[in-house]
Nucleic acid binder design. Sequence first.
RNA 1: GCCGGGGUGUUGGAAUAGGUAGACAAUGGGGACUUAAAAUCCCCUGGGCUUUUGGCCCGUGCGGGUUCGAGUCCCGCCCCCGGCACCA
Length: 853
Amino acid sequence: MNKHDSCCAGGTGDGCISGAASRNGNYDYEPKQVEAKWQGIWRDNETYVVTEDPLKPKYYLLEMFPYPSGELHVGHVRNYTIGDVITRYKRARGYNVLHPMGWDSFGLPAENAAIDRGIRPDKWTWDNIAHMREQLKMIGFSYDWSREVTTAFPEYYKGTQWLFLLLYERGLVYKKTAPANWCPKCHTVLANEQVEQGKCWRCDSLVERRSMDQWFFKITDYAERLLADLDKLDGWPEHVKAMQANWIGKSEGAEIDFVGPNDEKIPVFTTRQDTIYGVTYLVLAPEHPLVEKFIQGTEYEAPVRAFIDKVSKMSEIDRTAETFEKEGIFTGVYATNPVSGDKVPVWVGNYVIYEYGTGAVMGVPGHDERDFHFAKKYGLPIKIVIQNEDQSLRLEEMDTAYVDPGIMVASGPFTGLDSEAGRAQVTRFLEENGTGRGKITYKMRDWLISRQRYWGAPIPMIYCPKCGTLPVPKEDLPVVLPLGLQVAPEGPSPLARHEAFVNTTCPVCGEAAKRETDTMDTFVCSSWYFFRYAGPHNTDEAFAKADVDYWCPVDLYIGGVEHAVMHLLYARFITKALYDAGLVPADEPFTKMLTQGMVVRDGAKMSKSKGNVVSPDEIVGKFGADVVRVFMMFAAPPERDLEWSDRGVEGANRFLRRVWRQVTGGPDGEQPEVNDAPGEGISTEGLLRITHQSIKKVTEDLERLALNTAVSQLMELSNYIGRYQRLPGTSQSPEALDEAKAALVKLLAPFAPHIAHELWERLGYDGTVEEAGWPEYDPDMVAERTVTVVVQVNGKVRDRIQVEAGSSDEEVTEKALASDRIAKLLGEAPEAKDKIAKVIVVKDKLVNIVIKR
RNA sequence: GCCGGGGUGUUGGAAUAGGUAGACAAUGGGGACUUAAAAUCCCCUGGGCUUUUGGCCCGUGCGGGUUCGAGUCCCGCCCCCGGCACCA
């Protein structure tokens, strides 16, 4: 860039020879110097290192820690700035604030870098962390860096392994062979939460089904509590709670035992027990073990086998496609309805999911849309057992199922019951006759945590030929991940090929045994890190009770919504498990949650391929961190997407430069010249009023996380100060101006900490702006002495009058009626008074005169 | 389809408890200062009408409703974004 172009427009003042800066050295705001100076002071003084202090109220503020990809992006900057603003505010208000940072540093990209570029995953990771840590420091975030946590360090993953063993002891870990989601590109299995529309959440590859022997965490044991406790999370966004509830997917219904050949029970799960008399067939999942039993040695064996074979070859994406056709085939057997006694054919269908419910469903074509289509397609009978209100349903007229509630008909003893009530009746009947039971089913499955990858925390289990599968004794932790192994794109993980790792001895019999070579899902690492920050140097334990008792739960957690179901669900589960073990003080990890929006440019998510990426280094280098912080807080409310705007950044730049001039200038401020007119209505009283109004407004906005409007209030205060400084010197009150400046700097400090610290120092106060604490407003100063009251006639604004604040309704009404405009509208007295139907007065705000028409 | 969120000037957004719609910015326009530019400062910037130093009408996705008064509450739609999706 041309140096002359950038010198005054851009901002740093380098090489500037003319303009305001040269007339008065104080005008020369140089963010680079100011920011380096204060970052150095904060580092040298360990300003933001916190210790437990029982005398102060604690506040634990956490942003989701990053994966060390190598480069900080603007989304991170926004996320962490929001957190830093609140942190600095809370600190100024006297809270003992824990605000830590760390690295979610296990995971695939490190391995891919090793494969693609021949860099060791550990080196790649440590280098990235070092670089990103420096980037974070450049933005002036007030982290307690002494508590930095790195999940890939043995001292951390020792805790992850300890957690695994704790869950194992508590019966929350098991191994089973089951069809799993296999990502062919990542060469590993994935948990259900990590598959989005049949694709891998990280790399978008189509996920395949593969049967594998895998470790699971029994999150389903906590399904009910994870769902019910959402109600306790008042501080969470609705959409996150909704997504979790949806994911958990609770269904209340009944399991009904149909009876097949040889009295074989075929349990089905339904939420519509009331339609039991409408069942005309059953459908089993292709994987259902009874299918094989039913068809063996019959004429149906070959065609059903062929059908199952065809279904099993379908990919996940075929099964979820819009065009997916419901297909089925008769097995040749019939089952008896335990309530009605009807005999119905048993089918196999490609749409029945073996893992959900009982893997078998009852077909009620009259009252289920999908069953209706299936029955039509295969010529199965349809029965009406629920009638609408006017009893007008006719089978021959039906072209769609009747799925609404109604009255039970043709339902034996239940006929005439309301269908909703009938549901409970049918369940009672089933239970009394031992042919079924009320049942609650959840969609959520257990959390598959095995990963066939190298760069992760080893699962601490041992396979002994004599003693079986055994946990590693806790005193032997950590099971150290060997570094420097050759990582290959295909085949077994390097751990499985590394003899020194695999071969071990049995902790029970001492004979030769083998280690588990799968590593843990990185989401396990991130499901407890917020406890580790409470005492990150603990070498004996993952965390000490006293530490988490002091700091936890997290008071405010900030991160992207992409983790609504994944990280946030896992973290809640782990917290509940730890709570049940008596190790942590609360059964929910995050009291309040803020999901910040994305940073977009030209309406699209930033990506290298679109070429619309903004580099934090570049923009901070050009304008300084404070400008970037202020822009990002101002441009949009935190939870909404933020449209990046170069113009907007320049606006923030102008604002901070103006504040600099206003504060560093003398009482004369702008050194007014002929053209510097202050505008209308500027007074010392007004200056003090807006100062106190700003303290009130900014404080309230920070409390409700409305950071954009807080910044706008700072701009209004600054605008007023600027105008005030343009009054003739004799009309200015230096004391009032000092008060206004001090308030402005204090209120600005959370948003633009460097410039605020520097200005505070230049104002000559003792101590730092943070040590000065948060300003208090005086309610008397906030109140306007005279207020503008709107005068409406029939709800339309017709005039505005000035009245003394707190005037009585009568006074205001009188004044309103007396105004020229209103008098004109009402016409001449005395008829005027008769026209008035009523008068509504809202104190100090509005008068509405309602007139008859 | 179900669940959640949203729709306000040219743009980002504000209006927190039903009470002045458009704060604060950005953009654009006009002016001051300057040899000039930058920077800075001042004014204007939703639409239409008008008898134009004044005033009127319309306007918060659409259509109704409640109310003295609706961006805000209620009913019915439309559209956009996000999540889930043969879950029985």
